[in-house]
Design a protein around this nucleic acid. Structure first.
Length: 489
RNA sequence: GGUCGGUUGGCCGAGUGGCUAGGCAGCGGUCUGCAAAACCGCGUACGGCGGUUCGAAUCCGCCACCGACCUCCA
């Protein structure tokens, strides 16, 4: 199939036809989590959004190098020279080594992401594992003249950069506006300008996570790891960079500035940003204190949750909205997704029930075209899903004999559903393992309750039949005064 | 305050100058011993006020409200 994938590029604010730098190959970089707490619903959104992209690119036949970082260097809680870093703070609260915190929450993140059936990135680099590369990157920026050293720290000279390049081209900001709007923050003394950002920061005495450098014992700046690691693994120019919309400014703006200062050009061809999950119309965020963790969702252990929601329900819920729209969380919406998902998956199962006939009365070519058109239009998963639902209706009509399909087309239909539902949307059949475990014992209880009823009615032939039948299956029944007990021998 | 975005039926959520998005819930019917499932049918929604147009929810203007970013955040 001809590739006509269009992607909305945050940089140009337009949908653009996707043309990779190297035909057939895609370099994809996505901003991963800072591992200082359990992943919440907000983390699931970019993970699933870019998993969908990854899966779709693979489906289209691209060879994709997918890189997603883990931020394990603690960054300060605010843009002041003072302040504690998040990982350090967490380590202090839990009385653990910073690296124990990092390891614990990295494992937890991986576990949650696998529950959501996201494919693992090909490379998952750690910021702490690329300190030398980050220092070399700073050297290049210093050499080009867009950074300056003060007291062992190195800062990016935004004003100087803006004179030659345009600082703010991604976020649509103008430096003049930034100057007048920058808040007064403590400890900005070292910087030439308040909007300058750190490339290397000298560690204060209480700061445990630090590394030697020619400037000072310190640690890399907040935005540097992504520029450095994307360059290392994907090159000075690569195709797609993704992340949450909240990272657009300043994080991604600074990445562009760093790359441009170091290499004379912005590294990224297509910037993609997923929108936020909202709760009662407000962004769900760790710092806002309204984030519901994924573990809470899967276990149903949060006051806001009426029940537990399976990872697939959460995944489907997210895929039913377009990634650039905000998505409002509510129990009602989750439950609608849960039922919708069941309906869709039942529909896929029902394909097996179809008996082919000699002729095909439905338009499979048009169906297939609609699916690809929706995905090619900036990954419009909700529209694609709506077509799949329409298709389920058609499947039922074939089973009911109102439409017909021949053997070859049945295989095609089967193939389309498997490709789009399982390979591209990444949905899985709902695991009923937990239910099944309890099912057999519940079944025996049910049968024995029927036997009790029969005994009450003095229908002893039925009650004996039940007892003898169960005995044959190795189940011993012990009648009690007020009921029964049973045991598997 | 600056920049950007949004406001769609009971809920969620697409879309877009004229042609049924879809899901969930609801209502009526078929089926059924009852129920469930399945199937058929139903709602005529696009924040307000103007304007452009043969025709606007869709384009333009104004207003209202909500949100995001401007500080770490997915």
């Amino acid at each position: 199939m001809e590739n006509t994938l269009f992607i909305y590029n945050s940089l140009t604010r337009k949908k653009e036809k996707f043309n990779p730098i190297t035909p057939g190959h895609v370099g994809l970089y996505v901003c991963g989590p800072t591992v200082y707490g359990d992943a919440h619903l907000g983390h699931a959104r970019p993970a699933i959004t870019f998993d969908l992209l990854y899966r779709y690119l693979l489906h289209l036949g691209f060879k994709v190098r997918y890189v997603r970082n883990i931020t394990d260097v603690g960054h300060l809680e605010n843009d002041a020279d003072e302040g504690e870093d998040k990982i350090l703070k967490r380590a202090r609260i839990e009385s653990l080594e910073p690296m124990e915190i990092v390891q614990y929450y990295t494992n937890s993140y991986h576990h949650n992401m696998r529950q959501l059936n996201t494919l693992d990135p090909g490379i998952e680099p750690l910021a702490s594992g690329h300190i030398i590369e980050q220092q070399l990157f700073i050297d290049r920026i210093l050499k080009s003249g867009y950074a300056y050293e003060v007291n062992g720290s190195v800062y990016f000279d935004v004003k100087k950069y803006d004179k030659k390049y345009n600082y703010g081209k991604l976020s649509g900001r103008k430096l003049d506006d930034l100057i007048s709007n920058t808040r007064d923050l403590e400890g900005q003394g070292e910087k030439k300008n308040p909007f300058d950002f750190a490339l290397w920061k000298k560690a204060t005495s209480g700061h445990i996570m630090h590394w030697p450098s020619k400037w000072s014992e310190g640690y890399p700046g907040w935005h540097l790891e992504c520029s450095t690691m994307s360059t290392k693994y994907l090159g000075e120019e690569f195709d797609i960079h993704g992340g949450g919309l909240d990272l657009l400014f300043p994080h991604h703006e600074c990445e562009i500035a760093q790359s441009t200062a170091a290499n004379g050009k912005g590294a990224v061809h297509y910037w993609m940003h997923n929108n936020m999950i909202t709760l009662n119309g407000q962004k769900m965020g760790k710092s806002l204190g309204n984030a519901v963790t994924l573990n809470d969702f899967f276990a149903g252990t949060h006051p806001l949750l009426e029940k537990a929601y399976s990872p697939m329900t959460v995944r489907f819920f997210i895929l039913q909205a377009h990634y650039r729209s905000t998505l409002d969380f509510s129990n009602q919406a989750l439950q609608a997704s849960e039922k919708g998902l069941e309906r869709l998956l039942n529909g896929v199962d029902d394909i097996e029930k179809i008996r082919p006939s000699g002729k095909t009365s439905i338009d499979l070519t048009s169906f297939e075209k609609k699916l690809y058109e929706a995905m090619n239009d900036d990954m419009n998963s909700p529209v694609m899903i709506s077509h799949l639902f329409e298709g389920v209706k058609t499947i039922r009509q074939i089973i009911a004999g109102k439409e017909t399909i021949n053997q070859a087309d049945l295989e095609r239909l089967h193939g389309l559903y498997h490709a789009f539902v399982f390979d591209i949307l990444g949905l899985q059949k709902i695991e009923k393992e937990g239910k099944q475990k309890d099912l057999s014992s519940d079944l025996i209880d049910t049968i024995l309750n029927i036997r009790l009823k029969a005994k009450e009615n003095k229908d002893f032939s039925t009650s004996d039949l039940i007892r003898d039948s169960l005995n044959k299956l190795g189940i011993e029944i012990k009648d009690k005064k007020d009921g029964f007990e049973w045991e598997v021998k």
